[in-house]
């Protein structure tokens, strides 16, 4: 029995690619409808029976996932044209928006490993660039951290929810894919990081920088983070399209962080000019 008005099955169109550098192609699958499906369960169904609509047996589609609760960020992909998490993309809603078919693509701003699996190392590299951590002395017992007001906690908390999913980067018109193919097969970590370090940090990292700069301990290294925000590929690359905040699944106030970073870098520049 299916709920009234639900199709018996629906089509899934997936942009597939066998390996980096290989051409991509569309493949279409028909998936029987069940209640409570999301895109992960659709992919699981396809994995269990990888046969295209025209009856070809193909390799199962590769994708990433872990928590299935929209907290780990692994399963990010482009679903019906919009970047989001597969685990929280409900089939009923997708079919209501676009009857009959669901379209899945890998994120376009990161190199594809295979099918829907992409290489998001750059996203984590950005966190290193802005030194997204608290420089505490040691892990010994030194009593509690600094006391914080409710207001401070409430300002910090939303920013700490960033799960490094990459939605904000995929949707950002200023965030461009970094092409590592010029380095060929054996790209060294140094080469790769150097290439990343010249490119746009992305909204998530700007927001993390502001998170740590707002923390009483993080403040002690605020200048380093601001310098990182002002280096090549820093905050200045942002063009205020504000897509990042519109697509962030955790509804992180990214553009507020960006504006606050704009203010902090303004003041930092002036200070540096007069203090040095």
């Amino acid at each position: 029995m299916t709920t009234s008005g639900k199709p018996a099955s629906f089509e899934v169109r997936i942009l597939r690619q066998d390996a980096p550098g290989e051409p991509s192609r569309w493949e279409r699958f028909r998936v029987p409808y069940e209640t409570d499906m999301n895109v992960i369960s659709v992919l699981q169904k396809i994995a269990a029976n990888p046969r295209t609509i025209d009856g070809r047996d193909v390799a199962p589609v590769a994708w990433e996932s872990n928590c299935l609760e929209e907290v780990c960020g692994a399963c990010t992909m482009v679903i019906n044209g919009r970047v989001r998490q597969a685990c929280s993309a409900l089939v009923d809603q997708l079919l209501a928006d676009r009857p009959g078919e669901i379209e899945l693509r890998p994120m376009s701003k990161f190199p594809v490993y295979r099918d829907l699996v992409v290489d998001r190392q750059r996203l984590f590299r950005s966190l290193v660039r802005v030194r997204a951590w608290l420089p505490i002395d040691d892990y010994s017992d030194r009593g509690p951290g600094p006391r914080q007001s409710q207001a401070e906690q409430e300002q910090a908390y939303p920013l700490t929810e960033c799960m490094s999913c990459g939605c904000c980067l995929e949707a950002c018109p200023q965030f461009q894919k970094v092409d590592l193919s010029e380095y060929g097969e054996g790209t060294s970590d140094e080469q790769r990081n150097a290439a990343f370090d010249r490119s746009f940090l992305g909204a998530h990292a700007i927001s993390q920088a502001m998170l740590f700069n707002g923390h009483p301990i993080g403040k002690t290294s605020a200048a380093e983070r601001l310098d990182a925000l002002m280096a090549e590929g820093g905050i200045q690359v942002c063009g205020n399209a504000q897509n990042c905040v519109a697509v962030c699944p955790k509804e992180i106030p990214l553009t507020t962080s960006i504006a606050r970073a704009g203010r902090a870098t303004t003041i930092h520049t002036i200070k540096k000019f007069f203090d040095h």
Partner: peptide, 22 residues
């Protein structure tokens, strides 16, 4: 208690009381 203190120092945004305690 020491572990919670350490996590606090590491920036975990524990919910706060109006006075600022965890």
């Amino acid at each position: 208690p020491r572990i919670i203190d350490l996590m606090d120092r590491l920036g975990v945004p524990f919910n706060r009381t109006p006075e600022g305690f965890r």
